[in-house]
Amino acid sequence: MHPVIRDIIDDFNPTLLNQLDGALELRVTNFKRDLFPSLEKIDLAIPGAGFQYVIWVKHEPKYPFPGWEFDPIARPMRYIPTYLASGMKFTDIARSIAQLSGGHVEECVKAFCETLNPPEHRYQGMPLGTLARQRRLIACLGSDCTAELSGLASVLINKAKHEFGSGSPYPIISFSDALGGYFASRILGFQVLQLGGILDRYVEAIRSAYSQRIAYTMPSGSDPGDDDKAWPLQSDLSELEENIEEY
C-alpha cells in the first residue's frame, strides 16, 4: 500500500491500519463470508456511512438511496461493494474501486463548497486535486486536510483515471492501494462533511433509507444510465427478498 494512503489511515487511527493489513492477507473465495465482515468492522470505526449500511439480498449487496440531495455523495459508494461481490479478480476491479472512492470524496468536497458564504459554484467542475489547491478551500478546510486530499488524488485517483500503460506486467493500481484508498476517502470524506455541517444529515438520510430498505436498484436487463426519469432509484427491498441467507 502506498505510504501516502497508509499515512492518511494511520493519522486517523493506527488500529484500523493494522486491521486493514490483516484483511488484505485473508484468503477470499466468497466476499460476503470472507472479507466483508472485516471491511464492515473498519467502516464502523469511521464516522459517516460505508459498508456498515450495505443491504444484502442473498449474495447481492445493495446500498441505501438517501434521496437526491445526497445522491452525488452516496452514488459512488453504491458500486464498490457490488464490484467486490461480483466474483471478478480483485486486481481486475482495483482501478474501478479507486475511481469510485475518488468520486465519493470529491463529491464530499463539492458539497462542502456549497456551504460556503457565498457558495463556490465555480468549483463544481474541478477534479479533486485541483480543488485541494484552491486558496479558499485551504483556508476553510485547513492545510493538513487539503494536503491529504491532494496526496490521495496524486498517488491513486489521478492514476486510476488517466494512466493505463505501466510498461510492466504489474497493474498500475494494486488492490491494496484501491482498498486502502477507499478507507482513506471515507476518512477524508467524513472530515470534510463534518466541517461543512453536512455529516449528520447525510448519515441520517442513509440510516433512514437503510432501516426502510430503500436502495439503489435497476431492473434486470436495463441500463438507462443516470437518467432519473428512466427508472426509479427507490425500491423497497422487503418486496424482493428477505435480508437473510446462510453462507
Results as ranks from 00 to 15, higher is better:
82 T>C: 08
6 R>I: 09
166 S>K: 11
37 P>F: 12
112 F>C: 03
175 F>T: 06
209 A>C: 09
135 R>L: 09
153 A>I: 02
56 W>A: 11
70 F>I: 03
174 S>P: 00
185 S>G: 13
123 Y>G: 07
247 Y>G: 04
221 G>C: 07
243 N>D: 15
230 A>L: 04
101 S>H: 07
128 L>S: 15
61 P>W: 12
202 Y>N: 04
41 K>H: 12
92 D>H: 09
217 T>H: 08
127 P>G: 11
157 I>Q: 07
160 A>C: 08
225 G>A: 06
119 P>Q: 12
13 N>C: 01
213 R>Y: 15
163 E>W: 05
224 P>C: 12
175 F>K: 02
70 F>E: 03
199 L>P: 01
154 S>H: 13
243 N>L: 12
59 H>E: 15
129 G>D: 14
182 Y>R: 00
175 F>W: 07
153 A>W: 14
169 P>I: 07
22 G>Q: 14
104 H>Q: 08
202 Y>P: 02
158 N>A: 07
41 K>E: 14
233 L>Y: 08
190 F>Q: 09
40 E>I: 06
101 S>C: 12
170 Y>I: 05
183 F>V: 09
33 R>L: 10
7 D>G: 00
62 K>M: 15
140 C>D: 13
65 F>N: 06
135 R>N: 12
179 L>H: 00
72 P>S: 11
60 E>F: 15
1 M>R: 11
142 G>P: 08
124 Q>P: 04
148 E>H: 12
100 L>K: 09
155 V>K: 09
132 A>I: 00
6 R>F: 04
49 A>T: 02
159 K>T: 09
56 W>T: 09
94 A>E: 05
238 S>T: 14
72 P>Y: 11
51 F>H: 09
241 E>Q: 14
226 D>I: 10
107 E>C: 10
191 Q>D: 14
154 S>I: 01
149 L>T: 13
173 I>G: 00
12 F>E: 00
142 G>S: 05
135 R>Q: 11
212 Q>P: 05
45 A>Q: 14
106 E>N: 13
137 L>Y: 10
131 L>C: 10
69 E>D: 11
97 I>Y: 01
61 P>C: 14
32 K>C: 04
112 F>E: 04
